[in-house]
Design a binder for these strands. Structure first.
Length: 375
RNA sequence: GCACAGGUGGGUGAGUGGUUAAAGCCAACAGACUGUAAAUCUGUCCCUCUCAGGAGGUACGGAGGUUCGAAUCCUCCCCUGUGCA
């Protein structure tokens, strides 16, 4: 899942994402809550319609932001009081509030509000954090059960149109439920993707870097019961081998017939490895951020396109890649765009990295299918 | 020709007697980036050695000079900009 924190995958437009074959995007509760605010998104017909994306969206709960905005927050039993990184204004996010926001955004998959345990954390701290996440998970589930949307993009499109977009009243669920379930697009085009699945809430496993705690967290989260489970609290500064150990051991305790989502990971090598190990979903800012910083992932390894050695390199970025960037442009041109600070550098680099990640996942799926077929 | 202003490391530009191999910014070069406060951040950036802590050399238009000590003060010269002839 490419990460589109603010309702946009930095550097690429929705039609490019569609062409790349992206099936699901990640959005972020914390950021969208601060700007433009849930009410605006609701009035614009939900996040799908607002950003004109008719494929799936998963919203992260804000738990990670609360963790990374460390010095601006205060955690209590009920949630987190924090200050906006934008203007310093005080806000509160807790299990119920995080659910309310995500339901309002209308994502297909919403994440429980968790506490992302920092690294390193001692045994006592890791347990306390895990227990808090478990209590919050139960509260999230209770609130969600009573308030979730039956159809993620619950919009009365006709009502929005007749009222004029800017004056549209709050959307209702009725017409979307009675219709195809798909979101009518502003441009009148047929939606490329359709689902009538209900909005789903996933639980998140924590437990720090302790295998026993992870196991306990997994079992107790399963006891609460969710349609999918995430492994959170990783990629927070720990050594990569430790990440792998925790992922592999935690995975064993999660039901293999439900989606298993590893949050915030990883490099192409890592996502391939984890997918083979049974992880179904992953998200990571690495492909998009690294692209904007001139780091490109290729079949021959990492390429730092800003390096002087590529100044007159006529060859494509990755000879084995079939993305439109590799088919059309030379390394020399990509380096020039980057060095010249051209916006196009970020666009092209992002397109390539996303393509590479998606191609990696397709290859892994093919491999898994083949090995399943082989028994 | 006269009168002002000014010449600093690849560029720009601080510095007007010692703590200055010379701030900051840019360029250049390298590195980092993993549920996005990230078009961000870090390092190197005169030359030569190095036991990696340092050692030596050269340097603020040029040449002299004053001084224990000069990018900084003085003299002459060269060059640039602006104004007046």
């Amino acid at each position: 899942m490419p990460v589109g924190t603010l309702g946009s995958v930095k550097g690429v437009s929705q039609d490019v994402l569609e062409d790349l074959g992206v099936e699901i995007l990640l959005g972020n509760t914390y950021h969208l809550f601060l700007r433009p605010g849930v009410e605006t998104v609701r009035r614009m017909g939900g996040l799908h319609r607002f950003m004109s994306w008719d494929r799936a969206i998963l919203t992260d709960s804000g738990g990670f932001q609360v963790f990374s905005l460390n010095d601006l927050r205060k955690v209590t039993e009920d949630g987190v009081a924090f200050r906006s990184h934008l203007d310093g204004s005080p806000h509160f996010l807790g299990p119920e509030k995080a659910m309310e926001i995500q339901i309002g955004l209308g994502a297909d998959i919403v994440m429980a509000f968790d506490e992302c345990t920092e690294y390193p954390a001692d045994a006592e701290r890791a347990r306390a954090s895990m227990e808090l996440t478990l209590r919050w998970a139960a509260r999230c589930k209770n609130y969600f059960r009573e308030h979730k949307c039956e159809v993620p993009w619950a919009v009365d499109a006709a009502e929005l149109r007749s009222a004029g977009r800017t004056n549209a009243s709050a959307p209702t669920r009725a017409s979307a439920m009675s219709g195809s379930g798909a979101l009518p697009r502003l441009d009148g085009a047929e939606p490329r993707h359709h689902t009538d699945a209900n909005q789903a809430l996933f639980g998140i496993v924590q437990g720090g870097m302790d295998a026993a705690l992870r196991r306990e967290s997994a079992l107790r989260t399963i006891d609460i019961g969710f349609p999918g489970y995430a492994i959170g609290g990783l990629s927070v500064g720990e050594p990569r081998e430790l990440t792998r150990d925790i992922v592999l051991s935690t995975l064993e305790h999660l039901p293999s017939d439900q989606p298993r989502y590893l949050m915030g990971v990883g490099t192409p090598e890592e996502i391939a490895q984890y997918a083979q190990a049974g992880v179904d979903m992953m998200d990571c800012v690495l492909p998009t951020r690294a692209a904007r910083h001139g780091l490109l992932f290729t079949s021959e390894g990492k390429v730092s396109i800003k390096q002087a050695r590529y100044a007159q390199d006529e060859s494509p970025l990755d000879p084995a890649c079939e993305c439109r960037v590799c088919l059309r442009y030379s390394r020399a041109y990509l380096r020039h765009l980057y060095a010249s600070n051209e916006l196009l550098a970020q666009v092209l680099n992002t397109v390539h990295n996303l393509h590479f990640y998606l191609a990696t996942m397709r290859a892994v799926r093919a491999w898994i299918r083949a090995s399943d077929a082989a028994g």
